[in-house]
């Protein structure tokens, strides 16, 4: 469980995160959603201490994160970057194995783990094990990035716009494989995105952020059908029809008609 209490972070005179508090339960997938500059990435990076807050406190499973050495803390938290951040001088196997290697895993255990992960992420081990990142496509590189974050089986996974740098087709295929990973079942996941559809597809709960504050915190249905104000409504407007259609169960025609009518009314 991650507990965030009254966190504020400023960069010079600009307040990036403004007195935010929230709790994330074990095994939950939470999406920080918002436009660029809303403070979502800043909030994420404070959880593994890539950034230090100006005030407030973050606890993981009851322990303040400042009580642990940053490197020990980070080895227990998976991290996926938008631009992959793979080490160009490491092979794919070495890239995936960084955290276990830092933790001092035995070679054969590590090797088996890497093989298993590569298979799960659709990266044929015999073909890619000894390749360097430069030889891989963007989608494949991000699969390696995800495998690297999962390698030491951390209970918490932080993802900073993980699919943001991919083209739409690759994005949906990587996202689909990601969603189906059994590795993720018991993990607490925090994902940052500005992509509304992605947020609705992956989230148990969505935090919609603006100007460093949480505007609304709730399930996708809460945001869609019980928006907490104009900002939320406006933010979802563009894709409301697709989102509503997505939330409906197959065969619920009256609801679908209602949604379509709403859509038509807005168009006219």
């Amino acid at each position: 469980m991650i507990t965030v209490t009254n966190i504020t972070k400023r960069f010079g005179r600009h307040t990036a995160v403004d007195n935010i508090s929230f709790t994330i339960n074990e095994g939950e997938t939470v999406v920080f959603l918002g436009a660029s500059g809303c403070g979502k990435t800043t909030m994420l990076k404070m959880i593994n201490r890539l950034l230090e807050p100006d005030s407030g406190e973050i606890r993981i499973d009851g322990t303040p994160i400042t009580q642990r050495r940053p490197e020990d803390l980070r080895r227990g938290i998976g991290y996926v970057l938008q631009n992959y951040g793979l080490f160009p001088h490491y092979t794919i196997e070495e890239n995936i194995g960084i955290v276990p290697q830092l933790l001092g895993w035995k070679k054969d255990v590590l090797s088996k783990r890497v093989t298993a992960l590569m298979e799960k992420l659709q990266l044929p081990p015999e073909q890619y094990r000894s390749a360097y990142p430069a030889a891989l496509s963007g989608g494949q590189q991000q699969r390696v990035g995800i495998a690297r974050a999962l390698a030491a089986d951390p209970p918490v996974l932080l993802m900073d716009e993980p699919f943001g740098a991919l083209d739409p087709i690759t994005r949906s295929s990587v996202r689909k494989d990601f969603r189906e990973l059994d590795e993720l079942r018991a993990k607490t996941i925090i994902l940052v995105t500005h992509d509304v559809q992605e947020a609705f597809e992956l989230a148990d709960r969505i935090f919609l952020l603006d100007k460093g504050r949480i505007i609304q915190e709730g399930t996708p249905d809460d945001l869609l059908f019980r928006p907490a104000g104009d900002y939320v409504r406006l933010f979802l407007q563009e894709q409301r029809f697709q989102l509503e259609a997505m939330r409906l169960k197959a065969g619920d025609y009256p609801a679908l008609n209602r949604a379509f009518d709403n859509f038509k009314n807005r168009q006219s």
């Binding site: 593994n48 490197e71 980070r74 970057l81 080490f87 830092l102």
Partner: peptide
């Protein structure tokens, strides 16, 4: 050195010395 790579090195749990020796100096 690519800032993304540097950030990744820290985020994976390298100390600044490990990052210097294993990543920055090599690249």
């Amino acid at each position: 050195v690519d800032p993304g790579v540097k950030e990744a090195a820290l985020a994976m749990g390298m100390t600044t010395t490990q990052r210097l020796v294993k990543v920055e100096l090599v690249l």
